[in-house]
């Protein structure tokens, strides 16, 4: 593995959980804080294993970091919008976890904003479905909370 990494003296090799090796430039790698600190801690020539990130998520992150750095402000906006649009809900969730693990700051700004937009006018039932959460309140507990925050149920979109 060390041989592979040394093929290009500068690039950094990342090994995803499903066994794919990605070679990225230091500029890209350093935008993932988790990797940045690993590069500092270890010899940069060695392959960095990412046990919590799969190839799809890493490729999306690299796609984002490359896409947003190459263009003008308005083009970045457009690129970001398209990038988020292309993700299915399931991909969005998985990618968000990967982004959180790798600490990609710009995506940690963009993605929560996108998720917030998706859920801001939605009902509680929609939220449970969206987040895949099982209601663990007892009926009377839920009724009590709903009563306490009766002000929160105005202007909700239909699911």
């Amino acid at each position: 593995m060390a041989e592979k990494a040394s093929e290009s003296s500068n690039s950094i090799s990342l090994n995803t959980v499903d066994g794919k090796i990605f070679k990225v430039s230091p500029t890209i790698a350093n935008q993932m804080q988790t990797i940045q600190s690993l590069i500092k801690a270890y010899d940069s020539s060695r392959v960095i294993s990412l046990p919590h990130v799969n190839a799809f998520h890493l490729s999306k992150i690299i796609e984002y970091l490359e896409g947003k750095s190459a263009t003008t402000v308005s083009a970045v906006k457009e690129f970001e919008a398209q990038f988020m649009k292309d993700l299915s809900l399931k991909q969005l969730k998985g990618l968000l976890i990967a982004v959180g693990y790798l600490k990609v700051n710009e995506l940690l700004e963009l993605m929560p904003k996108t998720v917030a937009k998706l859920i801001e006018n939605k009902s509680v039932e929609f939220l449970r479905k969206f987040f895949g959460i099982v209601n663990d309140f007892t009926p009377s507990e839920e009724a009590k909370i709903r009563e306490e925050i009766a002000w929160a149920f105005d202007g909700v979109d239909e699911d």
Binding site: L127, F137, R146, I149, W151, A152
Partner: peptide, 12 residues
């Protein structure tokens, strides 16, 4: 209001 609704989703 949206945050209030999030409160009802689950204990967490």
């Amino acid at each position: 209001k949206a945050l209030g609704r999030c409160c009802v989703v689950s204990r967490r």
